[in-house]
């Protein structure tokens, strides 16, 4: 049962290597065992006529032909393996651009002693679960916040090093829904063995519903300094039952840019369509800064709803 593009690719390449390895082993071991059994010292065995004696350098023997045959046969096998590997390397090292994958399918993975953090473009961040949609290409940018880790997903046959100060890209296409174990594959300290996470592959609708659980929009999206923009957080049902329950509770807004909110927290009110809720705050930038302000909204969840967050940028003229 195919799990992912990487697993399918690995299985076929590993299969090729294994078949050839078994074939070569059978030939070489048969030769070795046959020679040992046939030419072992027994009463009937003939005394070789070229046994060297102490006091004389042994004459050299052996044909270059044997070397040529060995090297040629090996080369044929190795070329097959190299060609197979090249195809896989091209594939592994040609990830889709972030724009070519779905919204929420490009995730920043950061290794920490001793957990993995998954940060989505919408601001959602999780230290345990990497949730991705089925049947999509997933692009992961892998890095580390402290020491050398290695990010691997058991069953998907793909890994990449998580190195501080450097981002490695890894990608795969999901073929099967379910949970897979994410584990660190480079000794990173005392908690190495338990540095795990969960890859949760869900169908696309569930993913979209979950991913867009919090959507944040600011209107107008481009304002002048000291001009006010209204930012609305829209939440949709994320309950496992999918019954269209209405999210309840508060949403908190924040930004690293210079400016102020009329209030940092607003209380959700049910929306017009089933299973949605929203509330708004007003944001006023007080300096142009870098030319934009990133607004993040965090929803703490309620007994039926998971927590989530979203973010958006306001351009400041």
């Amino acid at each position: 049962m195919a799990v992912s593009s990487t697993q399918v690719q690995f299985d076929s390449l590993f299969g090729l290597f294994t078949y050839l390895a078994i074939a070569v082993s059978i030939i070489v071991f048969s030769l070795l065992i046959y020679f040992v059994v046939k030419y072992r010292d027994k009463p009937s065995s003939r005394q070789p006529d070229d046994t060297p004696i102490l006091g004389k350098v042994p004459p050299s023997r052996g044909h270059a032909r044997s070397v040529v045959v060995t090297v040629s046969l090996s080369t044929i096998i190795l070329v097959a393996l190299i060609i197979g590997s090249f195809g896989a390397i091209d594939n592994i090292l040609s990830p889709p651009a972030p724009s070519q994958v779905c919204d929420g399918c490009s995730v920043l993975v950061t290794g920490h002693q001793f957990y993995w953090n998954f940060a989505y473009p919408n601001g959602h961040s999780d230290n345990l679960v990497l949730r991705v949609p089925l049947g999509n290409s997933i692009r992961l940018n892998v890095t580390s916040a402290d020491v050398f880790h290695d990010f691997g997903i058991i069953g998907l046959d793909i890994k990449t090093d998580a190195i501080p100060g450097r981002t490695n890209v890894m990608w795969f296409t999901t073929y099967k829904a379910g949970n897979f174990t994410i584990q660190c594959f480079e000794l990173c300290g005392i908690g190495h063995a338990t540095m795990k996470g969960i890859l949760n592959v869900v169908d696309e609708t569930t993913f979209q519903q979950w991913y867009t659980h919090t959507r944040i929009t600011c209107s107008p999206s481009s304002v002048a300094v000291n001009q006010t923009s209204q930012c609305t957080a829209l939440l949709s049902d994320s309950s496992p039952s999918g019954l269209g329950l209405t999210p309840k509770g508060n949403v908190t807004f924040s930004t690293p840019a210079l400016g102020y909110f009329n209030t940092r927290t607003c209380t959700l009110m049910a929306g017009t369509s089933k299973g949605t809720a929203s509330c708004s705050v007003l944001y006023t930038p007080t300096a142009a800064g870098t030319g934009s302000a990133r607004i993040t909204s965090v929803y703490g969840g309620d007994p039926t709803q998971s927590d989530s967050s979203g973010n958006t940028a306001i351009l400041i003229a």
Binding site: T6, Q9, F10, L13, F14, F17, L81, I82, G84, S85, F86, G87, A88, I89, I92, D150, G152, D157, I158, K159, T160, F185, E186
Partner: peptide, 10 residues
């Protein structure tokens, strides 16, 4: 084979 190393590493 680097291609297999992406799975077998570590």
């Amino acid at each position: 084979s680097v291609a297999l190393d992406y799975a077998l590493r570590g």
